[in-house]
Nucleic acid binder design. Structure first.
Lengths: 208, 208
DNA sequence: GAATATATCCCTGTAAAAGGGGATTTTTTA
DNA sequence: TAAAAAATCCCCTTTTACAGGGATATATTC
């Protein structure tokens, strides 16, 4: 029997998904773990057909988990499930190789359909998510993709460090930090640090 | 038969709770709505014994909803359910008159126990939540309670407005805004706007 | 190898925030 | 009603951020 692994820390959702799959026509043996660490441990001893993956895990982010799974375990398909409808999160998840994406606000029939599609090798993106991705405007507007260094600087800004302090931490000149900061403001179309940090946090760039 | 109302926007959680109650020994007729607005409309035509209330609703916050319910409908008991384990949220919810508090990470047996206790007139606070409330340190430290005006100013700060702009919006002097800002920094023990906004967002004071 | 992206560094202003003091009036609560 | 809390207003100094220009070196990608 083919196996499915649920990686999800909320018991309600976990058990609900479990029961949903068990009572469906899908022929899947449904296992579950509560965090990424246990998930990887399980995968080392078992073979799963599909992983139902929550994005908010207690240890590492679902995005990182997906990246690891996709690089280390060939052929496993990943269906991401999230409650946050934030575009950057969705984009990063898809970039990490997720085969499907549904929202917790999807109803049960849609979830089953998504599982079916993903197992069959198709990519299933929930309508709600598609809507989220489609309203992509002119390049440079809305939510931007950041470089590694920019994310690094952004996190330090959000932690309350000033340019000189960040410069010291990263062993670079304060001018450079200032450049990154300006680029961040530009990319986010933010007029100051306050709204920059707010949008960064609400879009999951800064994990709290 | 006594009625229970579930106010929750995620179908998975909603249906799971529904089934949980239906298949339990609790003698409750379980109805559900997806947002606060429908919830209030339902309550105008029906009498509920208990409300299972999600904190993150699509329209207004669960805290506001709880306040309204408690003021307009006497005798209805409210059991709050949340995925966020942020202390301020919990405190505000309890201040709003919630009779119980469980986390989505609570297991099913605990949820049923909580419902039972709350219906019997007891207050049920999940162990995880209690732990959260208990590590209250010296007053003035950690997460502070804000005044109405401070929250108002804080939200505008997070939206990127400067002191003069906020002053204009609130019809007060820029000096006053500056005072509120200083108090916010003091209360949050934040050295600048960046970390102030970050902690405010992560603690659910600024709803996004 | 050429083009692009990323990261780095620098200067000059102006505007805003932060740190340090105050003070008075209004509202809420005990 | 008296005390406490909240909201209001004011000044001065220093630091930081923001806007506007640059430039160069190192990776990456095509």
């Amino acid at each position: 029997m083919r196996k499915a692994l649920i990686v999800e820390d909320h018991p309600i959702v976990r058990e609900s998904l479990s029961k949903l799959i068990d009572s469906s026509v899908l022929d899947l043996d449904c296992q579950h773990v509560t965090n990424a660490h246990d998930g990887l441990a399980w995968l080392n001893g078992n073979k799963a057909e599909i992983i139902l993956l929550d994005i908010n895990l207690p240890d590492i982010s679902g995005i990182e988990f997906c990246t690891i799974v996709k690089s280390r375990f060939a052929g496993i398909r990943v269906l991401a499930i999230t409650s946050s409808e934030q575009r950057l999160v969705v984009e990063q998840m898809l970039a990490a190789g997720a085969d499907g994406f549904i929202l917790k606000s999807s109803d049960t029939s849609e979830i089953l359909e998504a599982i079916k599609q993903v197992i069959n090798g198709n990519q299933y993106i929930s309508a709600g998510v598609t809507a989220l991705l489609s309203n992509k405007q002119a390049p440079g507007s809305d939510i931007p993709l950041l470089t590694r260094r920019e994310v690094e600087v952004l996190k330090l800004i959000a932690d309350g460090f000033t340019n000189p302090e960040i410069a010291e931490k990263l062993f670079i000149s304060p001018w450079t930090v200032d450049s990154h900061r300006k680029n961040l403001l530009l990319k986010f179309n933010a007029k100051n640090t306050a709204i920059l940090v707010k949008t960064a946090v609400t879009n999951g760039i800064i994990t709290f």
